[in-house]
Design a binder for these strands. Structure first.
Length: 492
RNA sequence: GGUCGGUUGGCCGAGUGGUUAGGCAACGGUCUGCAAAACCGUGUACGGCGGUUCAAAUCCGCCACCGACCUCCA
């Protein structure tokens, strides 16, 4: 298999040929969710983008260690309730223990990810479980002279760092611009410069989650967890670091500075960032309050939704756009995705039942190289999907007897289609009725359609149409074929 | 204000110096007892104005509009 794989590196702003540090292994770290709320469409895009990467690297034969963290401490609220982290704040509102909130939303996140067929990462560390490691990194940075203590908190000294290093290398920001564009924030008086960011923060009395440290009872700064945990599980230099584009600055910029300060080198070879999802052209986010949670999408229970959309529809919708392009939400787009997805899945079923001929009138080899080429080019899933629809045409055309396929080609086509649709894009069949009830229902429909077939043979069109119309009314789609019939239940 | 990105046919969304993206919708046809499904065919789109070039949606410049980030929002 050709392992050529080109990735866009945010750091160089170029597409680069992927070359892992160790020949057959890949270490990747992705910023996971902050578990103080339900997962929304934005979380789905980030998770699916890096799930696609994880799946494709694995498909290419790499042994991948995929680390995705759970942030359960340390995010501050930037409003009047300063000093209190978001998890603590929500806990008080709901009269719950902070870890209870964390547990609830972690489980909810996992449930949603499972529904979206997002594979679990190899390791899913949580920030609260790595306080010791984070304190160790803060110490290292202090010893290296790139941080200072102030009133029980520890801050990264950006200006000192910038004298000898390039602060802003990832985001393209210049330190002079940053200095002249700072807005007024609370707690600034503790810092030497407005650019400095917290490595350790002293907890205020109302702050529920805090841990002992050499400096104060407090909690780690937001950027600390990723530096500490990626190093712990992937080493101080590793291949890929991913996350949403909104994390480039300051979060990932700070991570680079932290690891250079602590370990003396940049940790990450390839920085990858997925674009955001917009709603009516505007960014969607927790803080903007215009987000749609995944459970709302799956149930259709939201004022912006005309109907429910299944997890696979959402997955397909996201994969139909390139991960670095913005993607705008609309009912129309979702509905189009639903139908396209449906067609792809039907083709998969047809493909499994095709019968081979002596020769082939189709070109599987070209299709195959097209598919790999698309994925190899910075994971161009929309192009891949376009090629898969070429395959759909092939499959349907063979099924209709307008094209033929040899036994060898059929096997090749089946494995190709299966690899790309199910293993790499991570799509799956939905709503396969396996319950006892469903099976009996199926038998009853078969019975009725057999009666209809009899009626048709007797040219009793009245009875035949009556049965079909009634079934259609109930949500069954009846498809006549030369040798009988097929049917499908459309749940709406 | 600074930095970065975007503007593609009815909708979504690829692509990028000269050859069909693809999906959904629409229209015509084949098939069918009639439908449905499937298949075949049809769209000549690239924000505006200049420039480079034999050739630009694709490169350059200017303008307009939109968005993201700018110290804690995936």
């Amino acid at each position: 298999m050709d392992r050529k794989f080109i990735l866009y590196n945010t750091l160089s702003r170029k597409k680069e040929l992927f070359a892992p540090i160790h020949p057959n292994r890949v270490g990747m770290y992705v910023c996971g969710p902050t578990v103080y709320g339900e997962a929304h469409l934005g979380h789905a895009r980030a998770a699916i983008t890096f799930d696609l990467l994880f799946r494709y690297l694995t498909h290419l034969g790499y042994k991948v260690r995929y680390v995705r963290n759970i942030t359960d401490v340390g995010h501050l609220v930037n409003d009047a309730d300063e000093g209190e982290d978001k998890i603590g704040r929500k806990a008080k509102l709901e009269q719950l223990e902070p870890m209870e909130i964390v547990q609830r939303y972690t489980l909810s996140y996992h449930k949603n990810m499972n529904e979206l067929n997002v594979l679990p990462p190899s390791i899913e560390p949580r920030a609260s479980g790595h306080i010791i490691e984070q304190i160790a990194v803060v110490k290292q940075i202090l010893e290296a002279g790139y941080a200072y203590e102030s009133n029980g908190s520890v801050y990264f000294d950006v200006e000192k760092y910038a004298k000898t290093h390039n602060y802003g290398t990832l985001s393209g920001r210049r330190i002079e611009d940053l200095l002249s564009n700072t807005r007024e924030l609370d707690g600034q008086e503790e810092k030497h410069s407005s650019l400095d960011f917290a490595l350790w923060k002293k907890a205020s009395p109302e702050h529920i989650m805090h841990w002992p440290s050499p400096w104060s009872e407090g909690f780690p700064g937001w950027h600390m967890e990723c530096t500490a945990m990626s190093c712990k599980y992937l080493g101080d230099v590793f291949d890929i670091h991913g996350g949403g584009m909104d994390l480039i600055f300051p979060h990932h910029e700070a991570e680079i500075a932290q690891s250079v300060a602590a370990y003396g080198k940049e940790s990450v070879h390839y920085w990858m960032h997925n674009n955001l999802i917009t709603i009516n052209g505007q960014k969607m986010g927790k803080s903007l309050g215009n987000f749609i949670t995944l459970d709302e999408l799956f149930s259709g229970n939201h004022r912006l939704l005309e109907q429910a959309y299944s997890p696979m529809t959402i997955r397909f919708f996201i994969l139909q756009a390139h991960y670095r392009s913005p993607l705008d939400f609309s009912n129309e787009a979702l509905q189009a995705a639903e139908k396209g997805m449906d067609r792809l899945m039907k083709a998969a079923q047809v493909l499994s039942k095709l019968t081979p001929s002596a020769s082939s009138s189709i070109d599987v080899a070209t299709l195959k190289s097209n598919c790999y080429e698309a994925m190899s080019d910075d994971m161009n899933s929309p192009i891949l999907i376009a090629h898969l629809f070429d395959a759909v045409k092939m499959i349907n055309s063979i099924n209709d007897g307008k094209d033929s396929v040899s036994e060898t080609d059929l096997k090749e086509l089946q494995s190709l289609f299966h690899d790309f649709v199910f293993n790499i894009l991570g799509l799956k069949e939905e709503a396969v009725g396996t319950s006892n009830h469903d099976q009996i229902m199926g038998q009853v429909v078969d019975l009725l359609l057999n009666l209809r077939l009899e009626a048709k043979n007797n040219k009793d069109w009245g009875t035949a149409d009556h049965i079909r119309n009634e079934l259609t009314q109930l949500g069954f789609e009846v498809k006549d074929r030369k040798d009988g019939f097929e049917w499908e239940f459309k749940e709406k």
